[in-house]
Structure formats: C-alpha cells, structure tokens
C-alpha cells in the first residue's frame, strides 16, 4: 500500500526513561510509533501488529541484580525474540542493548547468552559515565540500520555504568568480525581506533559500541543515536541558525534506514 508507514512499538519497561524521545525520532524518520507499557496486564501478542521494536534507555527494574537481567526474563522479550526471527527490526539502545544481550538475541549465534555488558572500566570515573564519543561505522554489509547510508564517523553521546561489551568466548569476536556483525566501534574524531580511554569510554573489547545479529535486523548499541538525531542536539549546535538546528543530524540516517528496510519488507 502506497502511504502505509511502518509501525514501531517503543517498549517501556518500568524504570526506563527514554520512551518519548525514542517515539519522536521514529516519527520524524517517517514511521508510526506507539509506547507499549510493560506491566502484568500487557499481552505479548499485542506486538504482532508492529513491524519493529525500539527498546530504549534507562534502568529497567532499577537494574536489580544487574542491568537488563530482569527485563530479559519478561515474556514480552520471548515474543520480541520470536518476532525478530520473522525479520522484524529490533533496536536496543543503552539499557535496551543490555536487555538484548541478556536475552541472547545479540549476538544470537547460539541459543544462549554469549556476551555481557559489564561495568565500565574507566581510569577516571567509577560507575555511571556520561560524555560525547565518536563511533566508526565499518560494516560493509547492508543491514536494517545502514541502508540509508551512515557517515563513517558519528559524534554521539554515551550515558551508562555498564556498557563494556565483553565475553569469555575467545572465538566469538573473530566470528562477529567475520560475520560483519560489529556495526560501530569507538574511535577518535578522524576514525582512528585506540583501545584506551578516553577514545574507548568503557573498556569494551575490540572497541565495540554496537553489534547486530547475523541477519542484520537486530542492533544493540550503547551510545544514544536518538540523542544526536537533530542538529540542535549536537554539542556545537550554536553555530547553526534556528532553521538549521531543526534539521536532521547524521544519526537520523539510522532511523531512516529502519524505515526504508521496513518499507521494503511491506511491499
């Protein structure tokens, strides 16, 4: 159908706090978005009517036990796992990424948890760390998140205490590189990779900032693209006039990619 817009369900677990900005960025990119409040009365089947899912940032269940651990066991995540297998898009940002990793949907190569988002190792700040970083897009394979084209280097904020991608599986990172599942890596302004702080803000293995599943329709990313999607959100926005500031910034392409990918699926 010509004017049908893809529908995104913004999943809102108790304790998360990015639902409105997540909804807004989906709408600006040309999709419809509803906020789905996860509580004991929500029927996971409601998700069947959506084309994609956005699990945003915050502290689901107050990070009780560890970040993402409780939400990962919610029946709604089982449903999202099922829907992702059909090719629907799933984006997990920050706490959403932690939940996807705790469910095993990311990296999704085996039916088990293969990664952790462990507490940051940062020589300057213990615990929660909030700053602007650069990430490099180095995935040559087209997926649901780079279809519209992504700048090679993105300026983007991070805000987390448990964002260090790590694994005890020594072969996994090699496999992720081979499969082109590592979508974003922390880098400097010119795209140079340095594993040390402050380029790598949390000590993540291989400077990983974002990982997709093998099929490329699920992304777990620790930085917040929805907080860098308009010029007015960027730290140097003062150099632009009002009209310029209301325009999309480079990170918006990630959401435009999702729309394009879903529109293709809907044809």
């Amino acid at each position: 159908m010509a004017n049908k817009r893809p529908k995104i369900a913004v999943i809102w677990f108790p304790g998360q706090n990015c639902e409105d900005e997540s909804k807004l960025v989906c709408e600006f990119a040309g999709m419809k978005a509803d906020i789905i409040v996860v509580n004991s009365s929500v029927d996971p089947k409601i998700l069947e009517q959506y084309d994609g899912f956005f699990i945003g940032g915050g502290w689901s269940y107050e990070d009780r036990i560890r970040a993402g651990a409780i939400a990962a066991k919610d029946p709604i995540m089982l449903k999202i796992k099922e829907e992702a297998k059909k090719g629907k898009v799933v984006l997990g940002v920050c706490n959403g990424a932690q939940i996807l990793v705790e469910t095993g949907i990311i990296p999704g190569l085996r039916d088990k948890v293969q990664l952790a988002l462990a507490p940051n190792t940062n020589p300057k700040v213990f615990g929660y760390y909030n700053t602007w970083v650069y990430v490099k897009h180095e995935c040559k394979k087209t997926n649901a998140f780079n279809l519209a084209g992504i700048d090679e280097v993105l300026h983007i904020p991070v805000a987390h205490g448990e964002g260090r991608f790590t694994t005890t599986d020594k072969e996994l990172i090699k496999q992720l590189i081979k499969n082109e599942q590592i979508l974003f890596r922390y880098c400097d302004e010119d795209g140079n990779i340095d594993e040390k702080y402050p380029i790598n803000p949390n000590g993540a293995v291989y400077n990983i900032a974002g990982i997709t599943n093998k099929e490329g329709n699920v992304l777990a990313i620790m930085p917040h693209p929805e907080r860098a999607s308009w010029n007015k959100q960027l730290p140097y926005f003062e150099q632009h006039n009002f009209e310029e500031n209301e325009k999309a910034a480079p990170c918006m392409k990630l959401f435009e990619s999702i729309r394009m990918y879903l529109e293709k699926r809907m044809k």
Binding site: I65, R66, A69, K73, E102, V113, Q114, L115, A116, A118, P119, R164, T166, T167, T168, D169
Partner: peptide, 9 residues
C-alpha cells in the same frame, strides 16, 4: 539462569 552473567561474573 538469573543471578550471574558468566562473561564477567
């Protein structure tokens, strides 16, 4: 199943 993530704990 719930209380640890074996990749860092």
């Amino acid at each position: 199943e719930l209380l640890i993530n074996e990749h860092y704990q």
